[in-house]
Design a protein around this nucleic acid. Structure first.
Lengths: 340, 340
DNA sequence: TTGAAAGCGCTAACAT
DNA sequence: ATGTTAGCGCTTTCAA
């Protein structure tokens, strides 16, 4: 017998399929004679029976899957989040269907469509933009969702991400303590909540600490990429003088800043200190090792998945959103200004 | 109407569900009056009908999903492979269920079990070990599978991976050309086919080129990790003299070698040249930028997925295995011996 | 060309 | 405590 069905088990145990179903299902097992239950379980074991979740799903209108929508799995920021989501789902017997949007709204729409047709019960969204029509539609359609890493405006869904403001403040304080007075920010795109939040936090921090500030000390990148980061820093350095440190919107942007240092023969950290954000892998192997703000990415994933599962099961006891604590990892890319 | 069913469409179009089904399905559409078909399609469109693959799967015993078994998604080697798999599957309307085994055979068994219960039609395996009992069982159970990146002995399933031998030869030749005569190999685990294949290719290449060779010039790491790579190189350097270059089993092991250089104040590349394997992201930002063998990982994924789909659809016209070409990326971690 | 009927494997009322 | 019945949404014989 290739794949024994519930019927096969029931027949072999000499009971009705419904009884077998009850015996096999942990939360209905009480309804059936303990002796019978044992027998069914034993037979199932012997036959190597495994329930077919597809059939169950058809009946119960539950698929035990959720959709995980990320921009690009090859961006090192996301695998840990995916791991976290998967780990939390696994405990609950759920599975994630992962899709890559490549940041393309069209593609995102199609992929979410296909997820929904696969009857996912909920969505974990890592692609949120500040203004996000698709998410608004999804909200109206009442599918449970949770946003990770970034959020969209006007969406009620819970959000799990780093405490951007606290992280940036950590970075700025660190630089200020080293003696920097003229610190710039190479910000992520204003279309993303993290870009906006970090830029705002930066502005607040430099002002509060009485450091130099002004629009010439901030540029906004068009993307969260190395290339965009490099372009951003070039533009910034061309527009002002005396900058001794830069807080990058994230590690990828920081990497772009490294490229600019190389091409302009600026010594990092002696002439320019650089701080990243996210602490993606292998940053300690860079030249110089990158000082960055560490974010508990795996935990972002697990928390998001748990929040979603709670929403699915109606135990809506959870906070709307979770901001996870960040910490500063001091490495070699920051030093007192002028290499003193 | 929350989710219109086939019945809803049929009713609205004034036909029997069976007819609607035929009209909606591209390969049975010919069976139905062109006019009727058009009408059904239009109504379906209007209602926003999307077929329920779960129900379809129950009937056809096909889930349009495959399982993708990888050791750990946070290892940068795998995301590109996953991307490749997903991209190829998407075209065919298939979806991948991804699981992380953490290299634990128990866990792998459980996870594959759960994949099978979810009715995956086939498996892409990235966790193969030279001796792999689970794969032998799976082979007996006749589920279609394809191995990527590594292979298992005695398994007939197709394999898609880098041309390890050619890649290693590229690395060794490059070092020989720079003038190195005493080159060592810090190999990956002998439990993996890549570890074995690369080690054997290394031995062959140094002999063929008339370079120093012998057991003291090779160590085998217990894992494909930075830590294991560092341990390996330490052991090697403690056991022999005069080594001026090392070929690492992969980039992670090469990173471990970097650590040893740092702790023993060995200058790379002046005192020791290092070559990696895989060309994972951001290697060009290392200190020094790592010379490595580049592998088309995304293509490994797409090829594997295509092979699997062909197996599923019985178009078994494909070669059993595919070895993808590698190329050498020369960066800063290799130089003539003695820094000349 | 279309409709009728059955059934994929499972669960949930309902009946006993 | 167990069996009966019905049906989730779809496809696929078979018959008309």
């Amino acid at each position: 017998m290739p794949n024994p069905t519930l019927r096969d088990v029931a027949d072999a145990a000499g009971v009705h399929p419904a009884t077998a179903s009850r015996a096999l299902n942990a939360n209905t097992r009480a309804l059936v004679n303990a002796e019978t239950a044992r027998r069914v379980l034993r037979v199932a074991e012997q036959l190597g029976y495994r329930p077919n979740p597809i059939a169950r799903g058809l009946k119960t209108a539950k698929s035990a899957t959720i959709g995980l929508v990320i921009p690009d799995l090859t961006n090192p920021l996301f695998p840990p989040i995916v791991r976290g989501v998967e780990d939390a789902l696994e405990e609950a017997g759920y599975t994630a269907l992962i899709v890559n949007t490549d940041g393309d709204p069209e593609r995102e729409r199609t992929l979410v469509e296909s997820l929904r047709s696969r009857q996912v019960e909920g969505l974990v969204i890592a692609t949120a933009l500040v203004h996000h029509p698709l998410l608004e539609e999804l909200q109206r359609s009442d599918i449970p969702m949770v946003m990770v890493n970034r959020r969209a405006e006007g969406i009620e869904a819970p959000y799990v991400g780093p405490d951007d403001a606290a992280g940036i403040e950590l970075a700025v304080r660190h630089l200020a303590q080293l003696g920097h007075r003229r610190i710039a920010h190479v910000a992520g795109p204003a279309t993303t909540s993290t870009g906006v939040a970090r830029a705002r936090a930066f502005g607040g921090a430099v002002r509060e600490l009485g450091l130099d500030h002004g629009p010439e000390l901030m540029v906004t990148c068009t993307q969260w990429t190395e290339g965009a980061g490099a372009a951003g820093l070039r533009q910034l350095l061309d527009g002002t003088e005396g900058v001794t440190a830069v807080v990058a919107g994230n590690d990828l942007i920081a990497l772009g800043c490294y490229d600019v240092c190389a091409e302009r023969r600026i010594d990092c950290p002696d002439e320019l200190s650089i701080v990243g954000f996210n602490d993606m892998p292998f940053l300690d192997k860079l030249r110089p090792p990158l000082t960055t703000v560490s974010v508990p990415n795996t935990q972002i994933g697990t928390d998001a998945a748990r929040l979603l599962l709670e929403a699915l099961h109606g135990t809506d006891r959870s906070a709307r959103s979770v901001l996870l604590p960040t910490s500063l990892v001091e490495r070699g890319s920051t030093a007192p200004p002028g290499g003193r």
